[in-house]
Each structure stands twice: as structure tokens, then as C-alpha cells.
Nucleic acid binder design. Structure first.
Length: 245
RNA sequence: GUAUUGGA
């Protein structure tokens, strides 16, 4: 089991999906009794390759062979559906988990919330957050970033910042994604001053990546009056060893 | 050994 999941995972990471499937099929043909993790790995690998339908088929096979999908299986399918834009389906599956013997965990919630956030469904994300707390799950950086994404998508960067601060209040160390989401929120609202302010804070707490620089550069270059600032930021970027792409 | 966050 460990061997098979490592092998399948490795092949999928190298985008050698067909070979992974061959390994998986041979394993089953040989009549091995892999555990659920191997099915989960295969299903997720196929989703990585954009082959959602095939991933669902793997889960079907899993069930036919008498295995019970676990919380990872559900999370993989929920995240995969959301990535495909099939958020409604993901939500239906998510709801079947509530009150079942396989309740959603932090990752399941985060996956579902991401799908909702991408659609800018702020109220639904808030409901998710409340439900998480009710289920005694502690929101993490992913959770807060998802909430911020929904707010940024609906052009409410100040509310996103409040969420950011709430995360800090829960003693969560802000990560690169949270900063980048907030910077994006401000720069898309044309509030470069705020974006730069967040960026300065980011430099203190984590290492900005090319993506964060690109976001700011894009915003600064859009306005002729801040073009020099863009050049200065570019120098900064090089000096700090962040390579432009 | 397997699942979640940065797309105008």
C-alpha cells in the first residue's frame, strides 16, 4: 500500500498519469488488497491531470470492491468538483457528510469554502465558518484566505483586511497567500497605497514571492505617477534575490 | 504513503 501510493503519487506529480493508471490497474488485477489511501492517491492524481471523470470512476471502483470512502476521498472529490466549477455538486456531497459517520474535517471544509469563495459567495462562506466552529474545528490560514478571497472577489478589501486581522487575533501566522490575497484586493480596488502598506508588513513576516511583486508592479505601472515607484520596487526585488519571471 | 488557499 505504501509502495503503491508513493509510486502513483510520484508518477502523477511528474504528470505521468497514464503510467500511474497502469500501475494502479495492475495492482488491482493482481488482486492486491490496497487500503483506501491508494485509491485516494489515484483519484487525486487524476484530478491533478484534469481527469475528474476518471477520478470519480476510481471512487466507484473503490466502492464496488467493498471499500468505504474516507474523509480524504470525499475531500478529494469535493475539491476536484470545485476546481471544475461544479460547486453545487460539491456542496451536495458535502452535505451528505454532515451528521454521517464520516464528517467533514478542516480540509474538507476548506475545500468546500474555496469553491464558494471563488464564486464570491460571501454569505455562504460565513455560514461555513460558523459551521466549522460549531463542529469544533479551528479555522486555519486556508480558511481565512478563503474568506478573504470571497471578499476580494466582491470588492470589499477592507473587510478582507478585517478577516486578516481576525486571523492574527487567533494567533495564526499570516502566510504568503493571505498577504497576496489582501494585496490583490487593494490593488484591484486601485488602492495602491494600502497595497504597498500591506506589502511592507509582508516583508517583515514572510518572504514575498514573484507573484506578490508582480501584483504590485502591475498596479504601480498602471498609473504614470507611480511608475518610478515601480522601478524602485523592481530593484528591490532583484536585490532581495527574487527572480523576475 | 494520499486531500484544501494566490487566475482580470
Amino acid at each position: 500500500g505504501y509502495t503503491y501510493s508513493s509510486l502513483i503519487h510520484g508518477l502523477c506529480k511528474d504528470e505521468r498519469f497514464d503510467e500511474a493508471v497502469v500501475v494502479f490497474d495492475r495492482m488491482l488485477a493482481r488482486g492486491s488488497r490496497p487500503d483506501a489511501a491508494v485509491f485516494n492517491t489515484m483519484a487525486n492524481g487524476l484530478i491533478m491531470g484534469g481527469r475528474f471523470k476518471d477520478a470519480v470512476a476510481v471512487v466507484k471502483r473503490m466502492v464496488e470492491l467493498g471499500y468505504k470512502p474516507d474523509v480524504v476521498t470525499y475531500s478529494v472529490i469535493i475539491a476536484g468538483s470545485c476546481k471544475k466549477g461544479r460547486v453545487k455538486e460539491a456542496y451536495r456531497l458535502f452535505q451528505t457528510m454532515l451528521g454521517s459517520d464520516c464528517p467533514p474535517n478542516l480540509i474538507t471544509f476548506n475545500s468546500m469554502m474555496w469553491g464558494l469563495a471563488r464564486l464570491g459567495r460571501v454569505a455562504e462562506c460565513e455560514a461555513m465558518l460558523a459551521l466549522m466552529r460549531k463542529n469544533r474545528l479551528r479555522p486555519d490560514q486556508y480558511t481565512y484566505n478563503n474568506m478573504m478571497l470571497a471578499l476580494v472577489k466582491t470588492r470589499q478589501p477592507d473587510k478582507a483586511k478585517m478577516v486578516f486581522q481576525a486571523a492574527l487575533g487567533e494567533h495564526l501566522w499570516p502566510d504568503v497567500q493571505m498577504y497576496t490575497t489582501l494585496i490583490k484586493g487593494y490593488s484591484r480596488a486601485g488602492r495602491l497605497d494600502e497595497a504597498l502598506f500591506v506589502f511592507e508588513d509582508m516583508k517583515r513576516r514572510c518572504t514575498p514571492n514573484v507573484r506578490a511583486y508582480n501584483l504590485l508592479l502591475q498596479g504601480l505601472c498602471a498609473n504614470p505617477s507611480t511608475f518610478n515607484e515601480a522601478l524602485r520596487l523592481f530593484d528591490d526585488m532583484i536585490r532581495l534575490g527574487c527572480w523576475p519571471n
